[in-house]
Design a protein around this nucleic acid. Structure first.
Lengths: 283, 283
DNA sequence: TATTATTACGTTAGGCGTAAAGATT
DNA sequence: AATCTTTACGCCTAACGTAATAATA
């Protein structure tokens, strides 16, 4: 019977041209590879080599055998990956969200409810999330609007309200509320990895430029050492210490005050329980 | 790395349900198969089994692994067949003919010209022959009319003229020639394996019935012990002793007097030389 | 008690590398 | 002389089977 380890040597011979070179590359001795070629020949049952006294090369059939060997090795490698990804899928819960805030409470809940599983999450566009939950690419999705499918459960879990943090010296500092239109044109600090908020700000404030900070440290430094407006929400924690010289002013646009919807396949009762905990944290 | 022999054991376990049964079927000991399952698990790098104290079964991932193993084993088997058929193709010359007579002289010529190769032949319909020569399924074809392709060489090699062998007591016994129409309605003896002739007779003599003999012995017995007409041609040998009480009368229909055309890929010069020998046997 | 998986252990076959030979450039 | 394949040979691993263990139905 064919042996993948031996086929690897055959392919190496085809790639390197001589048995010696192939043996060297594979860190095995020349006699070993000689023997292996014979084994392969008997495994295939037909001659694969044209042998001279001190040279050996592939004949036509041999070249065909090398092709087959290559595809067989590729198939084997792929098989391992398939099985490994199958295992991973069975032992991880993947949640895709359109914004980070819902994940802050969702992920700890999942971790304690399913301690044997790996919890992983990803920020995605809403269409992607619906597609992935429907096709079992991920188990849980967080959207901004109810899911339009009847094979999915959909539960409103929390609201997030955007505010702008404006320097006390600013002209708008004492307003009770603002709109995107009011602050359109102001250049603002922004974190990266905030999901749909990035896109929303760019849409609603087309005249503004955004200084997107990937590093958390850089963002914090800029908040403390500049007068550039930044944003916070009712769900954000750890901002209060940063904004002692700023006023927090709610943004009243409806798009800035969102409800998050938890979606998952209706069959996944375990996750629906989690969603209900999120919706009513007193439970 | 994966090992096909081990995967075979995995599949056997999946098929037979228990390690003991699988071991028995494979004629190996239980400890061996236990070890093999562990090897496979480490080769895939993920758990494949749910183990109880004295039971073991495939988990979800394991079932997936079995699927992969099956297709890998099938691929390996197929690879061997591919290579073997490649070898066969390189060491046999296949000639497809619409009638047996041209093969009687062609095959011996091929055998002596290519003693290292296996010569094999087949009777086929003309369309099949053209397709097969064009697609390298066979090397040589024998047709009744020139090949309509310009990548093929086409050489007229011989003619065959059909005659009917009629009992001396028959009403037509003294005719110098006959047509299919004349003998239409007579029930005739026919050999099998005579290529296009069978179909031609049925077309031209729709009112006749044909007693097709697969066995050579049966055909000869019937020729000698019946008055049923049979056929011969200028290329047939070994008929003369059989038909001492019959007259041989040529059939004049154009379809009964055919020219055979030798075809092969233009690139196959070796075979063209053979065709020329057939066309002019004095060479 | 019969069946099944696993562990322990001793034996052996086979696979590998070293060394040497044969052949070619 | 250098390079390459093949053969010969000895070592040693690792694979197998037997026997024993543990657990279950």
């Amino acid at each position: 019977m064919l042996n993948l380890l031996e086929l690897e040597q055959l392919v190496a011979f085809a790639d390197w041209g001589t048995l010696s070179k192939a043996a060297e590359e594979l860190h095995i001795s020349q006699p070993t590879i000689t023997r292996t070629m014979k084994n392969i020949e008997t495994a295939f049952g037909v001659p694969l080599f044209a042998r001279g006294k001190n040279k050996i090369e592939l004949n036509e059939t041999g070249k065909r055998a090398v092709e087959q060997a290559r595809s067989l090795l590729a198939a084997a490698e792929n098989a391992v990956l398939q099985v490994q990804s199958c295992h991973a899928r069975l032992h991880t819960i993947l949640a895709e969200s359109c914004a980070p805030a819902p994940l802050w409470s969702l992920l700890p809940l999942l971790s304690s409810a399913f301690p044997e599983k790996t919890i992983s999450s990803k920020l995605c566009r809403q269409e992607t999330i619906i597609k992935d939950v429907s096709s079992d690419v991920c188990e849980i999705g967080i959207l901004l609007s109810p899911a339009p499918s009847d094979e999915l459960s959909c539960i409103p879990i929390m609201q997030e309200n955007l505010s702008v943090c404006i320097s006390r010296t600013d002209e708008f500092a004492n307003r009770k509320s603002l709109t995107f239109a009011d602050i359109n044109g102001f250049n603002c600090l922004l974190r990266s990895q905030i999901g749909f908020w990035t896109e929303l700000c760019r849409q609603k404030m087309p005249a503004s430029k955004f200084l997107v900070q990937t590093e958390d440290f850089a963002f914090q430094e800029l908040v403390q050492n500049s007068n550039l407006p930044c944003f916070t929400t009712n769900l954000a924690s750890g901002m209060s210490s940063l904004i002692q010289n700023r006023n927090v002013i709610p943004i009243t646009d409806p798009e800035a005050n969102v409800t998050y919807y938890f979606i998952c396949k209706k069959s996944r009762k375990q996750y629906i329980a989690i969603a209900n905990q999120l919706a009513d944290p007193t439970n």
